[in-house]
Design a protein around this nucleic acid. Structure first.
Lengths: 334, 334
DNA sequence: GCCGCATTTGACAACGATGTCACGATTCGA
DNA sequence: TCGAATCGTGACATCGTTGTCAAATGCGGC
């Protein structure tokens, strides 16, 4: 900046004025400064500016998700990015792999860089470690999972109701021997989905004993094996509710291996790529990660704009997408 | 920092020493400073430090890809992130949607933020706009597409050879009436894949006239319609080479709609999610985005560590994954 | 011709940190 | 016992920018 000032024969302050588009600069000076800046391809350092400036904003958001290499998280990321760009914000993303330790590290890495806001899918049991940062005034918005031990905005799917609706759908097609394949129950969303499943059974008057509940399935392989075991058992389920993405894929593999994919109903929670090209198409209870991301970004910006209302919890509905596998009727000979 | 210094009864410089782990600090002082820092939950501002520090590094990388919501780009992103974390770097990501204007804006947004390195999938015709940044010493590494008009490292798939190998695979299964479904030929990778396709035909002595080439297919719907037209035509192809992800999906849809998915061979360039669960499984020439991302990150860090050898072009091989659709033989009655 | 006012400009301190250097207090060897 | 080397510490300038305030300039009105 000093070089620009010298080249244009003005003071650094005047250059600063030009760069920031302040009004009281004579047209002739303006031109001189601009051409000098162009000649040196000068780019102002926003960090140095922020140091002195009053608002002290970095125009940067931190996004913490399961993994950037994951369709659900990717959709959230994209929605956040779209909202951020319009405001001149850049987005830092970090993958957590559902590892609470990694979560704290990643948050620290971002707060050190002075992000203006944080959007995160937490996997920690509780998030009081964020307390200092929140007190400092950084807006924090949780996506997909609600916070514990700290009052922050959260944008989540309606997991319980979505799971219940999926279950009712299976019941409506005559199924009684349902299998629920779920993730680790400690994961908040997993717990809620199981609750929805059980509530739907209860409301329909189906004894819980008729259903099989298998949990702790955190990847595709484990899910596949679990369902294979059920299919090979004495009373295989006539319908399967897979409560998560990877579990759905594992279930698909298992059904196919046993050639049961045309007579066993399946509904997955969360949409799966190319589900419509399978045979039969895979019925899912789809979430709306793009809406979740968009709304989360809106909350962050609202907070940055001074909204200091109490922490909100925003629920995004899920949508049943019928593609065939969920509409397979129960065998009539039961 | 001044507050910490006062609380501990030392000078700011001593606090700085503690924070940076410099050796010459008395244990007693160290403790006092640490406890004062903890009490105020002090976090040093890295930007202020960089202002004064000699190396002037922000420990930040900029990644510019087609979209964060895209499996190929997501895998690259993840690989870059994994490499970055180990070095204490954070990653800014930005989606370009193959829009050259957006590309320049996004690059500017990152260079203003003083990223230490850039990794990008360019969609501009040429990248001389990066010249000033490169001169400033920022390492730039291209992924997936080679640069034009500027000398920078590039990590790309072997598009021509991959396409040729895929084509040879189809020819080896007896096909002669091949269809090539490609993206806009202006896109570098698309051009190379077409070249590979044609070369393979030539080497096999198959007259080019036997093949149908349809291009400008930049999304799923257009690709689907294009293939439907071919299938409904007088001499439908017996094998299809779809030169890109979305085109493969469009092709799958078209084949399925006409019930030709069991007798028309298909090989896609670039892997597709759940391709193995289709019926038949989708044979693809898979790229290795994780390798591409990892190598690109390694190049950036090597440059940052002082490697000033000439710009390299690194080619990552593609891998044929046979899943069924590519092994469908040509009808024998031909 | 003088005064007041608006316009344009620059000097200076400050933001939060670190590099340099110098100072006083120890420790050590001769 | 003394000088030299070592250790721990702080004063100060500095990084690149902006906020504050005052100075210089030009203009119109009396």
């Amino acid at each position: 900046m000093r070089q620009v000032a010298e080249r244009a024969g003005v003071s650094v302050k005047t250059v600063s004025r030009v760069v920031n588009g302040e009004p009281s600069v004579a047209p002739a000076t303006l031109r001189r400064v601009l051409s000098a800046a162009a000649a040196l391809d000068f780019q102002p350092d926003p960090h140095a500016g922020n140091l002195r400036r009053s608002d002290r904003r970095t125009r940067t958001l931190g996004l913490l998700i399961s993994s950037v290499d994951n369709p659900f998280a990717g959709a959230i990321h994209r929605a956040v990015e779209d909202a951020a760009i319009g405001r001149g914000f850049a987005v830092f993303a970090s993958s957590l792999d559902d590892d609470p330790e990694r979560e704290e590290e990643a948050v620290a890495a971002f707060t050190r860089r002075r992000v203006d806001g944080l959007i995160l899918t937490t996997s920690a049991q509780e998030q009081s470690y964020l307390e200092p940062e929140v007190r400092r005034g950084t807006p924090v918005v949780f996506v997909d999972r609600r916070p514990t031990g700290i009052a922050c905005d959260a944008v989540v799917s309606d997991n319980a109701e979505g799971a219940a609706a999926a279950t009712r759908h299976l019941l409506a097609h005559g199924h009684r021997r349902l299998a629920y394949l779920g993730d680790r129950p400690a994961i908040q969303t997993a717990g809620e989905r199981r609750r929805g499943f059980l509530e739907a059974l209860g409301q329909a008057g189906v004894p819980v004993g008729d259903a099989v509940i298998v949990e702790d399935l955190h990847d595709e392989t484990v899910a596949r094996k679990a369902l294979l075991r059920l299919l090979d058992g004495p009373e295989p389920p006539t319908a399967v509710f897979s409560a998560q993405n990877l579990i759905t894929i594992g279930a698909l593999r298992a059904l196919r291996e046993r050639g049961r994919h045309r007579d066993t109903a399946l509904i997955g929670f969360d949409d799966v790529a190319l589900a419509d090209l399978m045979d039969p198409g895979v019925t899912v209870m789809a979430q709306h990660p793009d809406d979740i991301g968009r709304i989360a970004a809106e909350r962050v910006f609202a907070r940055l704009d001074g909204d200091d209302s109490p922490a909100q919890r925003i629920t995004v509905d899920t949508t049943l997408i019928e593609r065939g596998s969920g509409e397979i009727p129960a065998p009539s000979n039961t």
